[in-house]
């Protein structure tokens, strides 16, 4: 499917950039005519993925988070959130509701569950010591002219 638009953004893994990432993605998806609810869905999912990269991937160490976004002609938004941090040993387990590695009492363990609820598809690729890529996919533009034509 032909790309309408594409972007790459690298930023340091600091909490202040969670809000920045949400604003960037909101702006990027505007050409897909999102509803307010779709905007909020994507902002929430991106916030979860970027927060995971910062607090779990890099766990307080310096590092770079990359956002790679694409909008396709058929109205689909793709956002990859990429870190080169610790990686996840057991992705299936990490995706379970309430699973958290946090020993304190501050993380709900619901990050992936929230992403899955608000996006159409969530793909996770991870390798210990190499990092994690979370791909968030959502059909945003639901107008007839945007949807793929069926013969």
């Amino acid at each position: 499917m032909r790309l309408l638009n594409e972007m790459r953004l690298d930023f340091p893994a600091i909490p202040e950039n969670e809000a920045f990432a949400r604003v960037v993605v909101s702006g990027f998806m505007l050409p897909l005519n999102p509803t307010l609810e779709q905007l909020a869905d994507v902002k929430t999912a991106v916030s979860e993925a970027v927060t995971n990269a910062i607090i779990h991937g890099y766990a307080g160490r310096r590092g770079t988070v990359r956002l790679h976004g694409a909008c396709t002609e058929d109205g689909v938004l793709y956002i990859d959130v990429i870190d080169r941090g610790r990686g996840i040993a057991d992705v299936e387990r990490a995706r379970q509701p309430f699973y958290t590695t946090d020993q304190g009492e501050e993380r709900s363990g619901m990050g992936f569950t929230v992403m899955e609820s608000f996006m159409d598809r969530v793909e996770v690729k991870s390798a210990v010591g190499e990092g994690t890529t979370v791909r968030l996919v959502k059909q945003v533009d639901l107008r007839e002219e945007a949807l793929p034509r069926h013969a």
Partner: peptide
């Protein structure tokens, strides 16, 4: 706006 960090804040204070 709120993400699951807000849930962590509320549940964490509940435990406390």
């Amino acid at each position: 706006f709120m993400d699951s960090s807000g849930i962590g804040l509320i549940i964490g204070r509940y435990k406390r």
